[in-house]
Design a protein around this nucleic acid. Sequence first.
DNA 1: AGTCTGACTCTGT
DNA 2: CACAGAGCCAGAC
Length: 113
Amino acid sequence: MQKHEDFFKNVYAVVRLIPKGRVTSYGAIAKYLGSARSSRMVGWAMNAAHSPKNGFVPAHRVVNRNGELTGKNHFPTPFLMKELLEKEGIKVVKDKIKKFEEIYWDPMKELEL
DNA sequence: AGTCTGACTCTGT
DNA sequence: CACAGAGCCAGAC
C-alpha cells in the first residue's frame, strides 16, 4: 500500500540515483514509479525537494522530455540550474541540454527492475 | 468542498 | 512545425 508521501519519497530516491553528469525527465521518473501520466506530480515533488526534510536532491538533473531546463525558475536563482549542470560537464545552451540523448539516464533501463 | 493551477506529456488538427 | 485540448492528481485558496 503506497501513500502519496511514498510517491514523493520515491521520486527523491530515484533522482538521487541519477549519476553525475547524466539527466533524466519527469516523465521517465513517473513511468518508473508506475504512473506514466503523473509527470506533473514529479515536478510537484521537485517543488518541495528543497525542503531540509528531504535532504539533498539533485533536481537540476531532471528536465522535461526535450532536455529543456523548464524548472530553472524554481531554483533560488534561474541560472543556478544551468551552473550546476555545466559544473558536471553538461553543456547547456539557451536553457536546453546539448547531446541530451547521449547523457539521458532512463531509470527504466539503468535500474532495470 | 469546489475550483484552479502546475518543474509534464501525448495526441490531434 | 505550432498550437490546443485532454489526462494526470496533489496542494493551495
